[in-house]
Design a protein around this nucleic acid. Structure first.
Lengths: 201, 201
DNA sequence: CATTGTTGACTGACTATCCAGTCAGGGGGC
DNA sequence: GCCCCCTGACTGGATAGTCAGTCAACAATG
């Protein structure tokens, strides 16, 4: 593993432990074996490091999701719902999302962060819209659905649910929200004769 | 206006200007005419002040929304969508939401903040579920809708859209998200014969 | 009425601590 | 020898919180 990878991991660990507001270069350094000075050697500033970390997170999500790009459209949407709202079981459940939430909240005050977030948003909405277009072409989804409009609403819903899951912790109504998204957003997508039976988010 | 009110206003102003991560007692003090020491005189600690501020925000939202509790159910949902996603025109558009986002992101690391957020969430989901129940009773909404499940999905969607609006700023697809929520979430609520025509979010 | 406490709101100066970033230099591979 | 990673000690500035004391309002007392 390269030093840069180690720094990304340490940043992730520190962010989960302290949150963005209390994230310091020292707390990042404490999470790996080398020194704080080395962070400044590899990155010009704290902001520089954070922006790199955000790119790193986006790449990770895309790798994670691209695994099954040949699945059926509805299954892909269900899988995305699952990954976004609950997280992948391969890592700590809410950790990535806690880190992400802190970075997002900082975006309005930091142009570099905001720009990265905008790229992220565009990428994911296009991903959703493409899946919807596939579903329409294959006749599984209604053909009067506007893919972009659906993508915007769907992404708001799953990221909203993700935020609640992280913010409210044990008191989050995550299962209810998932069921609601499935029933009220995804089901309306289906063409006549198609059904959600046998699939689960 | 009492001193406490002034402090709440100053906290709000400082939070909008600097974001939670860079919020200091000094930056709050700079936003009003009295001294930083006075903040410590009225509140034991920074955390204490912030929690009070969160209660203050919730009260404000409820007052704002309770204005037209006798409107028709669908109009109430549309109005809530509008207020949550775009903000009320009476104040700066994104300011409250920027402040809110920062506080939310901090909740996982601060039990007092999290507890306040949980109360907030319960209150608002019950508000939505009650509106849905009204709509069902009045025959405007389908009677096979589960109010709690809808409330969870709806709240995720509008708060997700709110977050995007704040995070992405000018690049946010807010209009598209609003249209998507209206079309894919709210329309599915309507009983046969009812229509969204003539209403707008 | 005038003097004398008393209390609550408020302040400026202070401190101990912590922060991001710097810098001179160590050490190992090529 | 020279470049590339890397380090520990350092600095100047900022931070939350403290503290002694000011000031105006008010009540009680003579």
């Amino acid at each position: 593993m390269t030093t840069d990878d180690e720094i990304m991991e340490a940043t992730f660990a520190a962010l989960c432990k302290h949150g963005y507001a209390d994230l310091t270069m020292q707390s990042i350094a404490d999470e790996f074996e080398k020194s704080k000075s080395l962070l400044h050697y590899h990155y010009d500033s704290k902001e520089d490091l954070i922006v790199s970390f955000m790119e790193h997170l986006l790449e990770n999500f895309l790798e994670e999701f691209d695994e099954d790009s040949d699945a059926e459209p509805m299954d892909q949407l269900l899988r995305m719902t699952e990954i976004v709202v609950e997280g992948d079981d391969s890592e700590g459940p809410d950790d990535v999302h806690m880190a992400l939430l802190g970075l997002r909240a900082q975006a309005p005050y930091d142009e570099a962060l905001r720009a990265q977030q905008v790229r992220n948003d565009r990428h994911i909405r296009e991903l959703i819209a493409d899946i919807v277009r596939d579903g329409i072409e294959q006749g599984q989804f209604r053909d009067d659905v506007d893919p972009e409009r659906f993508a915007a609403a769907f992404r708001s819903a799953i990221e909203g649910a993700q935020s609640h899951d992280v913010i409210l912790g044990a008191d989050a109504p995550t299962e209810t929200a998932l069921a609601g998204i499935e029933e009220h957003l995804l089901r309306g997508l289906l063409a006549d004769g198609e059904t959600l039976e046998g699939r689960t988010a």
